[in-house]
Computed example of a mutant assay.
Amino acid sequence: MKKLTPKAAYRKLAAIYDKMVAQYGQAADAIGLTCEGCTDNCCLTFFQHHTYIEWAYLWEGLNELPADQLEAIKAKAQQYVEEAQSALNRGERPHTMCPLNIDEKQGICGLYKHRLMICRMHGVPNLLVKPNGQQVQFPGCYRCQEQTEEYEKDGKVAPVVNRTALYKDLVMLEMQFVGKNLRQLPKVDHTIAEMIVLGPPRIK
């Protein structure tokens, strides 16, 4: 399989992200889901991400920021890592604001264009079919579940985004981006904060 250059890989990743946004929008529009006035903030949710291509794309965006803004994000990322580890050591699920968030009340991402897959898909009901046929389902955020319950009162069935094809595309892109060393590299299992603290991924 031919290895892609970073720029070519990023273009393909952006195209996958566009498909996610479109499918998310269709599902959200159908049930009337919006983030406006939400009392929660999904940027507080503990997410771990699993691909080198998304990690590298995140740093593509970070490197476009002014130096002082990047340093401030790095400092918040370090604090996040420490707080999250303390929560995990206590047997608790971390509930700490993502270091990329620039407005806690509004949940505004400071790197919105480069936000990762899970950040884009969180909210609406979605499912993933694993290679062994097992289905993993997510009912959506708390507000989505409330909207879905209301939507289905009239006998309608709320839409569910099947992210299987999107994940397959992402896995294929990961293989093209990393190349033959993929199996020898450590498994990616990091929060955004960890990806920032660790710096850009080393894939050679």
Rank of each mutant, 00 (worst) to 15 (best):
I53Q: 07
V124M: 05
I73G: 01
C141D: 05
V136A: 11
L62G: 05
G110V: 08
G61T: 06
D103Q: 05
Y80K: 08
K74E: 11
K74M: 06
I102L: 09
I118S: 08
E104L: 07
L166Q: 04
M97Q: 10
E60A: 09
N162R: 05
L62H: 01
V171W: 13
E150G: 11
I118Q: 09
G123R: 00
P159C: 08
L127F: 06
A87E: 06
I118G: 01
Y167D: 10
C141Q: 00
L170A: 04
E82H: 10
K153G: 07
K74S: 02
Q145F: 08
L128F: 12
K168R: 14
Y57G: 03
P139E: 08
Q135K: 15
V124I: 15
P125Q: 07
Q134G: 09
Q85M: 11
G140E: 08
D154W: 04
I53T: 07
H114S: 09
L70T: 10
E152V: 07
N63E: 13
C109G: 09
Y142M: 13
D169K: 15
R120H: 01
Q85F: 09
N101G: 05
M117E: 05
A158G: 05
E64Y: 05
G110Q: 08
N63L: 13
V124H: 07
A84M: 02
N132W: 02
G110H: 06
T96C: 03
F138R: 01
C98G: 04
Q69G: 03
E71K: 14
P139K: 00
G61P: 02
Q147M: 14
R93L: 12
T148N: 06
L62E: 03
A56Q: 04
L58P: 04
